[in-house]
Design a protein around this nucleic acid. Structure first.
Lengths: 137, 137
DNA sequence: GGAATAATACACAATGTCGTGTAATAGTGT
DNA sequence: ACACTATTACACGACATTGTGTATTATTCC
C-alpha cells in the first residue's frame, strides 16, 4: 500500500522557466522520442568540453572581451600558453570557438550563440544550488 | 544600453539568441567581473555531471516521463541497476534530480527547472555542429 | 521471523583527462 | 639568412571516472 506521501517531495525550487525560446522551437520533451545512444554521445562530447574549470574561464573571458589571443588568455588565467592552447583547440573542435590569425597572434572568439546562454544557465543552476544548500538547516 | 549587434558579427552560424530570459536577469558578460576560480570549479562540477552519455540519457528519459524508478531506467537504457543507481546519485548530488520512495521503488524526477533548457541548448548546439560540418565542402 | 525484490555502498581494473616539457611551425623584423 | 616571438604538436606521469562484481540496507509479502 502506498502510504508514503513523502514530504521530501518538494516542488520545483528553481526560478528558471522550463522552456526557453531558443533555436528552432522544439516540441516538449514528452512529445519527443527517446534520445538515441549516438546523440547522447554527441551531447556528452559538448558537455565534456565545458566540464573543465580552465575551459570555462577561457570561454567566460572571451565572452567578456569579444576576442583574445593565446598569450593574453594565458596571462589572465595565470597559466602556460601550451596548456591554454591545448584547451582552446578542444573548444574549437566543437565549434564553440573560432580563431583568426593576425601577425604573430591568433585571436579566439566565441563562434556559436548557444555558448553564452549555456554558460548563463549553468551559472543559474550554481546559484540555485547555493540557495538550496544555505536554506537547508 | 548594451550593443545588440554583436551576434551579427561574421560567422555566427548559430540560430540561438545570445540571451535567454531565464533566472534573475543578469547583465551582459562584458559588464560582469571575471569568473573566479572557485566559481569556475562549481560550474565545472555541473557540466561534469552532464558530461556522460548514460547520465544524459537518464535525464532525458526522466524529463520525458516525469518520474521513473531505477529498475525502469535500467531496463530502458539496457544497463544494470547498480550502474544506473551510481549515476542517479551523482545527478542528485548536484540537485538536478530528487528522489521519492514508494514501497520497494525509488522514483527519480528532475528537481530544477534549469536542467531542461540546459539539455535543450546542448541539443541545439549539436544540431548547429552537424549543420556546419555538412555545409563545409 | 524469513524469503524475495529494489536500491545502494564499496573496492577494483580499464580507460580517459590534465598540465608539463620538449620540439616543431608560423610570422615579424633586421 | 638569422634571431625572436607566438602558437601548436606530441609523448609522458599523475590523477579521475566508468561499469562490474560483491555485499549490505530498505521494504513488502507470506
Amino acid at each position: 500500500m502506498p502510504r508514503n506521501d513523502s514530504t521530501k517531495n518538494r516542488k520545483q525550487t528553481s526560478i528558471c522557466p522550463p522552456l526557453l525560446g531558443c533555436c528552432a522551437p522544439s516540441p516538449a520533451f514528452q512529445d519527443r522520442p527517446l534520445l538515441s545512444f549516438l546523440d547522447a554521445v554527441k551531447v556528452m562530447a559538448l558537455f565534456k568540453v565545458l566540464a573543465n574549470d580552465t575551459r570555462i574561464r577561457l570561454v567566460h573571458h572571451i565572452l567578456r572581451s569579444g576576442e583574445a589571443t593565446v598569450s593574453e588568455l594565458a596571462k589572465t588565467l595565470g597559466m602556460k600558453p601550451q596548456a591554454v592552447s591545448n584547451q582552446l583547440v578542444r573548444l574549437s573542435d566543437t565549434r564553440m570557438l573560432s580563431s583568426r590569425r593576425e601577425g604573430n597572434n591568433v585571436y579566439y572568439r566565441v563562434a556559436n550563440g548557444c555558448v553564452a546562454p549555456l554558460l548563463e544557465l549553468a551559472l543559474c543552476l550554481m546559484e540555485d544550488e547555493r540557495r538550496e544548500k544555505s536554506s537547508e538547516a
